[in-house]
Design a protein around this nucleic acid. Structure first.
Lengths: 347, 347
DNA sequence: TTGAAAGCGATACCAC
DNA sequence: GTGGTATCGCTTTCAA
């Protein structure tokens, strides 16, 4: 069995209370006692039982991390950054992958509550909603920070990419390259990652006084399958777009697969850009221009927000939303097309 | 605050013991009592405190998952499969990413011990070794299953890909296509994923009575950087290989990047194959032929092994090693080269 | 500066 | 069938 605080107490001839005081650096302890306890700890290989500690209302230093999909390189990068940020603060993550399924999501929310995690980093599933339970948890005092997708902005802190800005910037960029018919493939419009990107796209178009063609916008899901279907649909238009803006790396995969299948060459036959940056985009031929989200910054902020909430548990604070600015990583997948430039071309 | 078993007891006019009995379905309880308790549980929104339960020696239903790198699509797929397999058995994973750093690895091992996880799924870092501590934990009764990489086969159960067979099959396949100079890029040779793949390669060559050229084998690390460096080295040989066998998806990225940079076309100028299958390999142009590891099966077995160990805690059992057979996913990245076939070509 | 004792939430043994 | 009661490992008053 594991050593307990009693073993250490016996070994040093002290009481459990004193040992505890040393371990927690709380209260007065004589230098000699301190030394003796520390020696005994090493000698016995004692390691405190976190469960018992947690029972006394101490934090578990466990954070629930709920993400929709871990085979998606975007969430993978998010998870990596979060785990690193958490470790730096001596927290660990309980990994919960809801597979975009609200029932699995609910299951995990309940489990995390039972496991007494100190807080939850939450990217909700794309459809269905456990809003009621999430709010109940939050109101019950469990800090929850929304990640990447926002639904309870009135109640919870959030750390999100500025999707509107990202799509806006990219659309402007494409306009500068002469593109006027910009195909946009996105996922669910009721997700902030769907709705806000659509807004950004529309804003850029209308600012440039380009009339948007509804047929060029294909909402669906952030999946490879939708990327394929939507690309086929765009190609089948009597007036196809000159560029396809893929709304996620999954969608991009579907898009590229269909273009390859049709023997279309990027960017000569069709320009392609994407939301979300991934390692393989840079070695693709041609390398794919993409909207880059500052994932590390997002993770850092999300963790900070959460730990602050945990620290001043009781305090009433207005929910905060951090919007992380995005940038365009320019590569070689956009061709200049013949059209009167709206503004001096930037490159 | 959270509801406790006492709240439920008070609410029903029963004792905590009885409520506990209902909750655990242990001992005799009258139908009426059962109903009353269940109603109260729902009404009060009571949810058992796992910490307190764990303190009484009950399992935490938490499994530590230590993997070296979560931005690698291979480990991502492994993690996904494991989390799904665990959830099916009502376990959750504490995600620990050691970034191939033995010190972070040790930190996590200690944390997991403190957090009283029921077991650990362990892919050790590529260098350095916490062997002593791992063995101490295992001997102390904490079930640990080695995953993907094996180092303590004499003591721990393991679930691994049959790396020897995978490399062997792929090398045979390349030989059938007439290749005689097969460049092999691998990571650390003291990893099972390095050493065993090398063996498989060599076995296939010697069986075919092809004399291996040591200059064609580049051991290093399973990183993109090594993939790049090794590819450059191979291309610089006075007699370069006709095919490059990339020992992981990371290495493959480096390899493809260098080939692109040199303007070499796959497979006309250079054939390319890889160990580890990834989604993007299938949409690459040309799609890349690869050794596929049955990751879902591996995850399932690893979880089974671990849960069995947990179930019959005390029982002495010989350590078991599961070797998962691999297969070749044939795509379009290998060209036939002029050489006397060793056997009838298969495709 | 240290120790005794209560208690966190749940379980399990033993009476009743 | 059900209710006390001790207990798990640790923290935390409160006395000494």
């Amino acid at each position: 069995m594991q050593r307990t605080i009693k073993d250490v107490a016996r070994h040093t001839g002290l009481s459990p209370s004193t040992v505890s005081r040393v371990l927690n650096r709380s209260g007065y302890v004589s230098p000699d006692t301190l030394r003796r306890v520390e020696e005994a700890v090493v000698e016995l290989g004692y390691r405190p039982n976190w469960l018992a500690r947690g029972l006394k209302g101490k934090p578990s230093n466990l954070i629930g991390l709920i993400i929709p999909d871990i085979s998606n390189t975007y969430y993978t990068a998010v998870a990596q950054a979060l785990v690193d940020a958490l470790r730096a603060k001596d927290y660990e993550a309980v990994l919960c992958v809801n597979n975009e399924d609200p029932r699995i999501d609910l299951h995990y929310l309940q489990i995390l509550q039972q496991k007494r995690v100190d807080g939850i980093l939450y990217a909700h599933p794309s459809h269905g909603s456990n809003s009621a339970f999430v709010r109940e948890l939050a109101l019950g005092g469990l800090p929850i920070v929304e990640l990447n997708r926002q639904r309870e902005g009135d109640l919870l802190d959030s750390a999100l990419a500025d999707n509107r800005q990202g799509a806006y910037l990219m659309t402007q960029y494409l306009l500068r390259y002469g593109h006027r018919r910009i195909g946009l493939i996105l996922g669910e419009s009721d997700l902030t990652t769907g709705g806000n990107r659509l807004e950004g796209y529309r804003n850029a178009l209308s600012e440039a006084e380009v009339v948007g063609d509804p047929a060029l916008v294909r909402m669906g899901s952030f999946s490879r399958a939708h990327g394929e279907a939507a690309t086929r649909a765009l190609l089948a238009l009597s007036q196809p777009p000159t560029v396809i803006f893929a709304g996620s790396n999954r969608i991009l995969m579907g898009c590229l697969a269909v273009l390859a299948e049709r023997g279309l060459v990027v960017p000569e036959d069709m320009s392609v850009v994407a939301f979300d940056n991934s390692e393989w985009l840079s070695i693709w031929r041609p390398p794919i221009t993409a909207v880059d989200v500052a994932i590390d910054a997002m993770a850092g902020l999300a963790v900070d927000l959460l730990l602050h909430r945990i620290a001043d548990a009781g305090a009433e604070r207005k929910p905060v939303t951090y919007l992380l600015s995005t940038s365009i990583v320019e590569r070689g997948s956009v061709a200049q097309v013949a059209a009167a430039p709206l503004a001096p071309a930037s490159g």
